[in-house]
Design a protein around this nucleic acid. Structure first.
Length: 199
DNA sequence: AGTGCGATTGACT
DNA sequence: GTCAATCGCACTA
């Protein structure tokens, strides 16, 4: 019964792909003044070492430095000037790589998420990387945060483990686009981009 | 100092 | 299905 504890850093896979699979089924917890909002991770993408689609492909910059922290730290950035993306750093310190959290199944604080998103439908609250950060009110202020420690944003253990994990190409990228680095719970109504997948 | 471009979303045909 | 919105940042000069 460890369903209420933060993920232990010592148990996090160092390898980016392993971490992307490991995070499926775990819980993202957001602590806000109004209360707690949380969701189960149903979809991730790995941005591995040497990945032409990754933000660290050309080395460390002020924006992406969080990806070089030890595993389990938040990397938050703004995409298209509109949506924030939440990533979990992977690999040893000094190596820049990470896992993008692409979709959550809402658990706690659904009324809070509805207010933050301005919509009612539970299925759409956190289905998509920009939607989940809006639902949980995640922005650049949380960049670099240790997600293995309780705080404003952290990752929680879960008792139920998915018995199967689907795999496909990543969504919305052009470089290194053929690699099967997207992972998701097959059949979940809460995963994004239900098109283009293969085993 | 200027420029082009996204790890997207929501509105619209 | 198509498409515009929007802006920080990395890159060029």
């Amino acid at each position: 019964m460890d369903g209420h504890l933060p993920l232990a850093r010592s148990e996090l896979p160092i390898d980016t792909v392993s971490l992307a699979r490991y995070l499926i089924g775990k819980v993202v917890v957001r602590e806000l003044p109004e209360g707690v909002a949380s969701g189960r991770i149903v979809e991730t993408e790995a941005y591995v070492v040497g990945d032409a689609a990754g933000h660290t492909y050309r080395g460390m910059t002020p924006r992406n430095r969080s990806l070089f922290l030890e595993p389990g730290h938040a990397y938050v950035y703004l995409a298209y000037g509109i949506s924030y993306m939440l990533n979990v750093s992977s690999e040893m310190p000094g190596i820049g790589a990470g896992v993008l959290i692409r979709a959550l199944e809402p658990l706690e604080g659904i009324p809070i998420m509805r207010v933050n998103r301005g919509i009612e439908r539970i299925r759409d609250l956190a289905r998509g990387p920009g939607r989940l950060t809006a639902a949980l009110r995640i922005d650049r202020l949380l960049d670099g945060l240790d997600l293995c420690r309780e705080g404003p944003l952290w990752l929680r253990c879960s008792n139920d483990k998915p018995d199967e994990i689907g795999q496909s190409v990543r969504i919305g990228i052009s470089r290194d686009a053929d690699r099967l680095l997207r992972f998701y719970i097959p059949g979940s109504r809460f995963v994004s981009g239900s098109k283009s997948f293969r085993e």
